[in-house]
Design a protein around this nucleic acid. Structure first.
Length: 269
DNA sequence: AGGGCATGGGCAT
DNA sequence: TGCCCCTGCCCTG
């Protein structure tokens, strides 16, 4: 489930497990072998998360930059680490624990200057306390795209993915096709505040929950769902099912190559 | 066994 | 706007 909340959670887990420790770094799969050899036995100082990018900061101006993409996963467990199962790109081990990274879109070593360049390309991240939402608002003003597209643009909202995009639009009752620059300030503020709340809850719980108490399964006489992404949501992957609020059928469509879910009645133009 | 699909994004065109 | 990459799971046959 790699939207921003997962990355921030991982940063915390890597930090708890390894910060301040000397760690062994290996690449059982081999694709990160040269870099692993470079870092092996060094000190992991701390970690950072910005949008969907994770940084493991080692001493001597070296950081591991990880982007999970669609499939990347990390598992943590106590040492001793067993023989790697599947394709493990990077294994860290130290302080009685190990962490295996599988399937990332990116895993490479960077200088802090290179890290800064990556971060510079990102918009404000609602999970970070140093985020400046004004920068996202300014981007909306100069955009020619729909609000549905802009919410997925990492230069505008870092860390927002397809689930938070769909859910925050639904909760604000905003039609995904509305021009981004036509969104009112009050509506933008409400969506930003909602992202801050929802994504931080996501970091805390390790899942995405967006449904208000009055619409929860128990309140509605429905059975709780157990979907692949873990949480309870209004529209994401609920195409063809009834909207919890108005009873209309949730719609699915392709928006610039990504699947968009929305309620045509609650989110009228 | 094999195809399609997924919470993402970089690159060529 | 497509095409491609990362991997695993679920569906079909």
């Amino acid at each position: 489930m790699p939207e921003g909340h997962v990355i921030h959670r991982l940063a915390g887990q890597y930090d708890v497990a390894f910060a301040g420790a000397v760690v062994s770094v290996t690449s059982p799969q081999g694709r990160f072998a040269d870099s692993a050899a470079l870092l092996n036995g060094r000190h992991l100082v701390d970690t950072d998360a910005y949008g969907k990018h994770l940084f493991l900061n080692f001493d001597d101006d070296r950081a591991v930059h990880v982007h999970l993409g669609l499939y990347g996963k990390v598992t943590f467990d106590r040492s001793p680490a067993p023989e790697p199962v599947g394709l493990v790109r990077m294994r860290l081990e130290g302080s009685g624990r190990y962490a295996d990274l599988r399937g990332p879109a990116a895993c490479d070593v960077m200088s802090h200057e290179q890290v800064a360049a990556v971060v510079d390309r990102l918009g404000p991240d609602p999970i970070r306390t140093d985020a400046d939402s004004e920068l996202a608002w300014e981007r909306l003003q100069t955009s020619r795209s729909s609000i549905g597209s802009v919410l997925m643009d990492q230069r505008t909202f870092a860390g927002v993915g397809n689930i938070y995009r769909a859910e925050v639009l639904f909760r604000a009752r905003v039609n995904p096709h509305r021009e981004a620059r036509a969104v009112r300030r009050r509506t933008f503020d409400a969506m930003w505040d909602d992202l801050v709340t929802l994504m931080r809850v996501g970091v805390r719980d390790g899942r995405i929950d967006t449904v208000l108490p009055e619409h929860e399964p128990e309140a509605m006489g429905r059975a709780p769902r157990d979907d692949r992404h873990g949480g309870e949501v209004y529209v994401y992957r609920r195409e063809g099912q009834r909207c919890f609020v108005c009873g209309s059928k949730v719609r699915l469509e392709d928006m610039q190559g990504r699947t968009l879910y929305w309620c045509p009645r609650c989110q009228r133009r």
